[in-house]
Design a protein around this nucleic acid. Structure first.
Length: 457
RNA sequence: GUGGUCGUAGCUCAGCUGGUUAGAGCGCCAGAUUGUGGCUCUGGAGGUCGCCGGUUCGAGUCCGGUCUUCCACCCCA
């Protein structure tokens, strides 16, 4: 019968109901982004490997999907190179393009290429799929959408505040509980300096970042892997323990101020303080200063933030931060930006498990027009078309030889609320039978009344 | 990338220690008189037991490989 059909690992098909739900999320995001003055761009699904490689660390490079060159590319490869079997090296010869891994790096490339036509500060949003050759698991796919908002070309902290505002707007619009964790890479830098391990900063941040997952004792244990002096570790422990016991942002800032001595660290704390003050003034809430938030991506240099659901355990649903030099790698230095990315697929999973999608979303067809008498088919079709000109979504049944019984059953399966039944008598009287499939009630109405009734429901 | 895990009708699953024509519920299709669905009743269709190979007289059931699913690590949305 069927041959073995399958789709690649970590990818998914979406049925009509799922697409409608996903589009609801995308539309909500777009509406909010637009409200805050952001404009959309799109970039190709593939980029040159040279723009992608080296931007996500060694781990990230491995997760890139590479695209085989077209043409007879084997000509350029010597027998020695084949025999060497150095996959890494060989793939660079065979592939010059790759699927994008995120939207931030393509955006940086876009900014550099279009710098002369862009008006800075540039506020863009971008909603497109990205691909990672990761091992799939729950909330983790090889193809998924990112919904990015970035402000580039200003180092004003108002950028951060606006992003926090957007987060609140989005999750309130979606009716989801959330909490935003905020920190600053400069504070982490300060901590590292104070412990004299600034040369192991990346390792330090990844360990710190695991706190909510493995607990503080494990974190302290892992910190021993670093060449950290005992007295520094002891001090750090005391500080972190105190910090975690405090619940308000104000107290946490006060404590951080008293502990962190390095200049960079102090700048970071001041930034956080300013952002939180401003956020407070405009009534933003659910923001928590969390000194252990680190985030993996190396290009962040200032503020970092991460949003989690308070209702479903699924990892972060939005994350971002400030990068002072993202375009520097492409030859345009000193352009500061701040941005974040919403994980639409995870938001979908949360909303689906909590049944938070609007009820009528998945039933976009308003009325099913039955068609069961061949002789008057053209008249029924005409009525269907009149309904459509009145902004009513109409499903018209194609085959007049199929029994009404069957047609009603189809309307029922399609979950359509209204069925319009039109026979010879109805045509003659210009009164049509409108049936409510939920209640079973039927009304004999004029066309105008039919339109009103459907629109009211 | 490392270590586990799952895979039987459209869906959710059952199938004891290998043994005759592989089952259930739901769904689907057709009827219960010709212009009325959802409930009920009756009947029916549908599976190369993920794929490839091996052990065996004989495998859905054991072994190996492979693909897929889910999970932990890594990393991340």
């Amino acid at each position: 019968m069927n041959q073995q059909l399958t789709i690649p690992k970590g990818t998914r098909d979406f049925n009509p109901e799922q697409v409608l739900k996903r589009e609801f999320i995308f539309q909500t995001l777009k509406n909010v982004f637009t409200k805050y003055g952001f404009v959309p761009i799109e970039t190709p699904v593939m980029e040159m490997l040279s723009t992608l490689l080296g931007k996500y660390g060694d781990e990230g490079d491995k997760l890139l999907f590479k695209i085989l060159n077209s043409g007879d590319f084997t000509q350029n490869i010597s027998n020695d190179e084949w025999n060497e079997k150095n996959l890494q090296k060989l793939s660079m010869k065979l592939c010059e393009k790759g699927l994008r891994y995120d939207l931030t790096v393509p955006f940086a490339r876009y900014v550099v290429m279009h710098r002369n036509e862009i008006v800075f500060p540039f506020k863009r949003y971008q909603i497109q799929p990205v691909w990672r050759a990761d091992r799939p698991q729950k909330g983790r796919y090889r193809e998924f959408y990112q919904c990015d908002v970035d402000i580039i070309g200003t180092d004003s902290l108002n950028g951060e505040v606006e992003l926090l505002h957007i987060i609140q707007d989005v999750f309130q619009s979606l009716n989801l509980g959330y909490i935003t964790f905020i920190n600053n890479r400069k504070i982490l830098q300060g901590l590292a300096e104070q412990c004299e391990i600034e040369n192991h900063f990346v390792k330090f941040t990844t360990i710190i970042d695991k706190l909510d997952k493995i607990g503080k004792d494990e974190v302290y244990a892992e910190l021993l892997q670093l060449p950290i002096q005992a007295k520094h570790l002891e001090n750090l422990k005391v500080f972190l323990n105190q910090f975690l016991e405090l619940t308000t942002n104000d107290d946490r800032i006060l404590l951080a101020k008293s502990y962190i001595q390095s200049n960079t660290g102090k700048i970071g704390i001041n930034e956080i303080e300013t952002i939180l003050q401003k956020s407070n003034q405009i009534g933003l809430n659910s923001i928590k200063f969390d000194i252990l938030l680190a985030r993996g991506l190396n290009y962040y240099t200032g503020t970092i933030l991460e949003v989690k659901s308070t209702e479903v355990e699924i990892g972060s649903i939005c994350g971002g931060g400030r990068y002072d030099n993202l375009t520097g790698i492409f030859g345009l230095p000193n352009v500061s930006g701040v941005g974040m990315s919403f994980g639409a697929d995870r938001i979908y999973d949360i909303m689906d498990t909590l049944h938070r999608f609007p009820e009528n979303l998945t039933h976009p067809i308003h009325v099913f027009v039955a068609n069961f008498i061949p002789e008057i088919e053209y008249k029924v079709l005409h009525i269907a078309s009149l309904l459509r000109t009145n902004q009513i979504n109409v499903d018209f049944f194609y085959d007049p030889h199929i029994k009404l019984k069957k047609q009603l059953s189809i309307a029922n399966q399609k979950n359509i609320l209204w069925v319009l039944i039109i026979g010879e008598e109805e045509i003659q009287k210009e009164q049509y039978l409108l049936k409510n499939m939920k209640t079973g009630e039927q009304y004999l109405l004029s066309l105008q009344e039919v339109i009103e009734k459907i629109k009211l429901s």
